[in-house]
Amino acid sequence: MRSIYLPRTADALAFAMSTYGIPLLVLATTRSAALTGAAFALEWIPRLAAFGWAGSIVDRCGASAVFFRASLGRALALAAGAVLLHLHPSGTVATATVMVLAATTGVLTEFSYIAAETAGAAAGRRAGTRAHRVQAVLLGIDQTATMTGPALAGLLLLAGPSQMLAVITVLSLLAALLALRTPPSTVAGAHVPKDAKSAGLITGWLTIRSLPALGWLVTGLTLSNLAIGLLQAAGPVIVVEYFGQSTTAVGLVWSAAAAATLLAVTICRFAIDRLGLWPVGAACAALASLACLAAAQAPNYLSYLVLVAVLMAAEGGMTVVLRTLRSRLIPPEQFGSTLSATILILLLPFPVAGVLTALTPPDALGHVIAACAALQALGLFCAFHRLRTDPALRT
């Protein structure tokens, strides 16, 4: 609890509030769908660039040291942003500040996330055949943070941007202090060579290629993430501009989705005990595909909220399967590098979704989401059809 779960809780809540709060802040300030999509892309592109370094540095320096430094750096960046927004609440300075914060917090958050995942995977390996239970708890923490983070960010935004950023700063400082309790995964202070970024990604990519079960599941979930990323990026535009709701209603959508995911993760934890990984994963894949196709045609806000919640709940079940496979199959000495490569592949669709949102007229967003949902369904079907007899999911 003190060494794994509590640090993860504080970091996940800061992650959720910054990820969903900054695009909301852009929309509230500019009322521009294009800038909202651009901010979403700006959040994710630097995160993707950080993964090559993050995995190698965690493998060499240890999870605790990286977690502490990344969380502390994020707290300092957010504190500076809060001061600037208090002095310049609108205009060019405010817009530039928010955009820089999106990029900076994105990079630092990925370092802390890789470190936390590495520590969680070590705990899963110690749990042996009950590794999926540890991963279910970690995913439950993430989803609880996602449930409360967007709604809290939306409420704090009503009080002012500085207040929202100040709360995220406090959470980041708390995560940094709690990270000192995280057991070191390697010898701290190891030298990181100049080619650590490329070497880490190459090592991770080769490891994924050597594990077919992991590769197929990552491929299916990557295509699924394109549809989910588009729903996230276009969410403020759909809810505020199309359904006529407030910015708080945007946070409510993802809070409801996180609550449904938390329930689904709990159910999947026991379902995997009785049925195994593949049946649970395949059922979640089918449910996610149907929900995403229906969400593209949602006639009103309530139906949109319910369908997004069902989609994310099913995605949560597939994530439990993925995390269990990662902790079971990836060699411990290569875990950080392989985890970085895995997450990099999974997150590549998110900046693409931001660009699509920025380039697509609001009236055509439904058609683009429907096309991505069809691609999601095809990708998940192919992945789980290929994995139906794989021993890694049948054990």
Rank of each mutant, 00 (worst) to 15 (best):
L293K: 03
P212N: 12
G244L: 01
A79S: 07
A258G: 15
T395F: 10
P349M: 00
C382L: 15
G52D: 08
L152P: 09
V310L: 15
D363P: 00
A39Q: 06
V355G: 04
L25A: 15
I228A: 14
V192L: 10
Y301M: 02
G189L: 08
L108Y: 03
V26R: 02
V355D: 01
I168D: 09
F15E: 11
V107C: 01
Q163A: 10
H367G: 05
G62L: 04
A291V: 03
P184M: 04
A94Q: 08
K197A: 12
L344T: 12
L348T: 15
R74G: 05
P7R: 12
A259P: 10
R47I: 02
V253I: 08
R8W: 06
W278N: 09
L6A: 14
A116H: 05
H385D: 13
S255W: 05
A70T: 03
G91T: 02
V355P: 00
P362Y: 07
V100F: 09
V134R: 05
Y242S: 10
W53L: 15
Y5C: 03
G55M: 11
G276S: 02
L348V: 15
A249P: 07
T169Q: 04
G189S: 06
A28D: 14
L139G: 13
L6E: 07
R8V: 05
R326S: 13
Y304D: 00
A119T: 01
V218I: 15
I343E: 12
A256T: 10
E333I: 01
A121I: 08
L356M: 11
A341Q: 05
R274K: 11
T248L: 15
I168R: 05
A145M: 07
G366D: 07
F51G: 07
I45T: 04
L293E: 02
R133T: 09
L375M: 13
L230V: 04
Y113P: 01
A39S: 13
A121L: 07
G140V: 10
L101A: 10
L230E: 00
G124C: 08
T395S: 12
L231C: 10
Q245P: 05
L277M: 05
A295I: 00
G62M: 06
Y20A: 14
A33R: 00
A199S: 14
A358S: 14
F67I: 06
